[in-house]
Computed example of a mutant assay.
Amino acid sequence: MRKEVNPYYSGPVSDHFDGIRFFNPGGIAPRGLADLVRWQFGARRMRWPARYDSPFRPSKPDLAVDGERLRVTMVGHATLLIQVAGRNILSDPVWSRRASPFAFAGPPRRNAPGIRMADLPPIDLVLVTHNHYDHLDLATLGALHAEHAPHMVTPLGNDTIIRRAVPEARISVVDWGDRLDLDDGFVIHAEPCHHWSARRTSDRRMALWAAFVIETPAGKIYHVGDTGFHGGSNYRAAREKHGPFRLANLPFGCYEPRWFMEGQHQNPEEAVMGMLACGAGHVAGHHWGTFRLTNEGIEDPLRALEAALDKAGIERDRFRALRPGEVFDVPHAPPA
């Protein structure tokens, strides 16, 4: 039998790496092929419209946002433009028409990007949380490098994937717990989240996934691209280590059926619990309404989020379910 080799990363065994694959300590591993077939052929999928246009026009962002201001503009799915303290940051940038390895097949966009790529301000930093196609889009990263040459930050192994397509990219590679000191008071921390990775059937969990904490002169931001709730342990650990956050960017869609998705994708009620557990003053909600990846209806996350916020006694405008083109100027302090 041929010995298995990790094509992306070679490093020492750790509490979340067994020498070949990464894993969630004490967590739920992604389900296998039999369960995937059971889901695809057994569970009812709600119909989505062919188009789900945003009520917001594509944004044309300012070149920079400075002082105490913090602005988030939704591009779509998990792609956010974060503008703070003179720096422009993109999370998990995807401008492609499909979240797929193929141009002709795979989940299509149901709405246009909320910022045209030509209208982007100079991009300083790109955060790539993991390698699923709805988060790591090589065509987009190549275009961003050609136009902006941003500094890219990504967890272990994902740099190998990016460099194969963008060999000249400037990339910092981080493990959970790593700290990356930039200039002007910016620090990037890589923190655990409960997810997994794969680009094909043979490389499951061979590149790491992570959340990021962004320290800025205008406050701390907690960015989570994808995660299962995992009892809230990662949220509580982030607050214990970093204190409360001015803003958390949290996913709240792509969660049905629960028996299949629970370990990897939190639902709206869990996202609200995560907001409370990490001490976020405000939340930019993402990961809904652009790519149909799971079974819930296109607006089901909105209704479930509103119900969860009302049940928890949280004002709805503190957890904003952002739509493409929507601009969120984040208040500096949590409401009283």
Score class of each variant (00 low, 15 high):
residue 180 L to A: 06
residue 193 C to I: 13
residue 160 T to G: 04
residue 175 D to R: 09
residue 208 L to G: 03
residue 214 I to R: 00
residue 200 R to N: 09
residue 201 T to A: 13
residue 212 F to M: 09
residue 188 I to A: 03
residue 201 T to N: 10
residue 181 D to A: 14
residue 186 F to C: 01
residue 152 M to V: 03
residue 220 K to L: 14
residue 204 R to W: 10
residue 238 A to N: 13
residue 223 H to R: 11
residue 233 S to A: 15
residue 160 T to K: 05
residue 182 L to N: 03
residue 239 R to G: 12
residue 220 K to T: 10
residue 208 L to E: 11
residue 185 G to M: 01
residue 172 S to Q: 05
residue 226 D to Y: 08
residue 189 H to L: 07
residue 235 Y to A: 14
residue 223 H to V: 12
residue 214 I to L: 11
residue 199 R to M: 12
residue 195 H to L: 12
residue 208 L to N: 04
residue 160 T to S: 09
residue 235 Y to D: 10
residue 181 D to F: 05
residue 179 R to Q: 11
residue 214 I to N: 05
residue 178 D to S: 11
residue 227 T to S: 09
residue 228 G to W: 08
residue 179 R to M: 14
residue 235 Y to R: 08
residue 159 D to H: 06
residue 190 A to V: 14
residue 189 H to F: 15
residue 198 A to H: 13
residue 195 H to A: 15
residue 219 G to H: 03
residue 163 R to K: 08
residue 235 Y to G: 10
residue 232 G to N: 09
residue 178 D to L: 06
residue 154 T to F: 02
residue 150 P to N: 03
residue 211 A to S: 12
residue 214 I to E: 02
residue 233 S to H: 15
residue 206 M to C: 11
residue 231 G to E: 07
residue 239 R to T: 13
residue 169 A to S: 04
residue 232 G to R: 07
residue 190 A to F: 09
residue 217 P to Y: 00
residue 151 H to E: 04
residue 216 T to R: 02
residue 181 D to Q: 10
residue 216 T to N: 00
residue 188 I to W: 03
residue 157 G to V: 11
residue 197 S to N: 13
residue 187 V to I: 07
residue 180 L to Y: 05
residue 195 H to R: 14
residue 193 C to V: 14
residue 186 F to V: 00
residue 162 I to D: 01
residue 234 N to Q: 15
residue 213 V to Y: 07
residue 229 F to M: 11
residue 215 E to P: 11
residue 183 D to T: 07
residue 174 V to P: 01
residue 156 L to V: 09
residue 195 H to T: 15
residue 162 I to K: 00
residue 175 D to F: 15
residue 155 P to H: 04
residue 233 S to M: 11
residue 225 G to F: 06
residue 206 M to P: 07
residue 161 I to C: 02
residue 163 R to T: 06
residue 155 P to W: 00
residue 238 A to S: 10
residue 235 Y to C: 10
residue 167 P to Y: 02
residue 165 A to I: 05
residue 191 E to R: 08
residue 157 G to Q: 06
residue 230 H to K: 13
residue 159 D to R: 08
residue 222 Y to V: 09
residue 177 G to E: 04
residue 213 V to C: 09
residue 209 W to H: 08
residue 150 P to W: 00
residue 197 S to A: 12
residue 216 T to W: 02
residue 188 I to L: 05
residue 156 L to M: 07
residue 184 D to L: 02
residue 230 H to L: 08
residue 177 G to D: 05
residue 183 D to S: 09
residue 217 P to I: 02
residue 150 P to D: 01
residue 213 V to K: 11
residue 161 I to L: 10
residue 171 I to V: 05
residue 181 D to H: 14
residue 167 P to L: 04
residue 206 M to Y: 05
residue 213 V to W: 11
residue 216 T to V: 02
residue 214 I to Q: 03
residue 213 V to Q: 12
residue 201 T to K: 15
residue 224 V to L: 15
residue 180 L to H: 04
residue 234 N to I: 07
residue 206 M to N: 05
residue 173 V to C: 04
residue 185 G to V: 00
